[in-house]
Design a protein around this nucleic acid. Structure first.
Lengths: 116, 116
DNA sequence: CTGGATCCCGTAGGATACTG
DNA sequence: CAGTATCCTACGGGATCCAG
């Protein structure tokens, strides 16, 4: 692509947001540490594989920490890092916007589809 | 904060955000109406097909309007609706977060990969 | 200039089964 | 409980050609 350096690259960070599950995991950890199964129960529709993959990715990005507590029985807890916390705060307006505009978007879609 | 309920479906709206190109298109229209080729030039790496697809999707959701000027040569302009404008505003904190944390994320990734 | 129509490939991601 | 390992399919998305 050889793009000029002038192009800022929100791409890399927005890929975190653009991920299908990342924001839901971040949101699931917003109120404090959670364990794997707690997280899975709290995120509707996520598969165990995608929860694992997403957690690994967020851990790699320094947004959450993974702590193994014991040998047996296995007990692993996940917790947002400070940076993960600020990410969650940064997404708050977007979340609010989502709730406030869901019905309007539904209406727009219906109208668009009706126009054929 | 973050009341536990709200088991709504942010999924549908977050899918807009989770889209690879939507936020870039919204951003490209933030300063006023733009034409197809202007948008394409402004969004680094987007293909003509994905720009078309993304524009259609955003139009369907009521986030932007498409206006065809019946002159030669063909002239189509896209413009954010008020709702599209508020979406852009809602993403502002996230954009700011991106710029502020890019280097930190790069460092976290490097450290993670080094440990691995 | 603004796209629509095809072709084609890589990968995201779901289902399932197995392990420490 | 908290994953890992496969398998497999759908769809995202790039390249290319064509049309109004």
């Amino acid at each position: 692509m050889t793009s000029p350096a002038a192009a800022c690259r929100p791409r890399e960070v927005l890929d975190i947001v653009a991920d299908k599950w990342s924001l839901f995991v971040v949101r699931g950890l917003a109120d404090g540490p959670r364990r794997f199964t707690e997280l899975k129960r709290g995120i509707d529709g996520i598969s165990q594989r995608m929860l694992t993959v997403t957690l690994r990715s967020l851990e790699r990005d320094g947004l959450l920490t993974r702590t193994v507590h014991n040998i047996m029985p296995p007990h692993v807890s996940y917790e947002l890092t400070p940076m993960g916390g600020t990410l969650h705060e940064a997404t708050a307006p977007l979340m609010r916007w989502s709730f406030e505009n869901l019905s309007r978007i539904d209406a727009a879609r219906a109208a668009y589809d009706a126009r054929g």
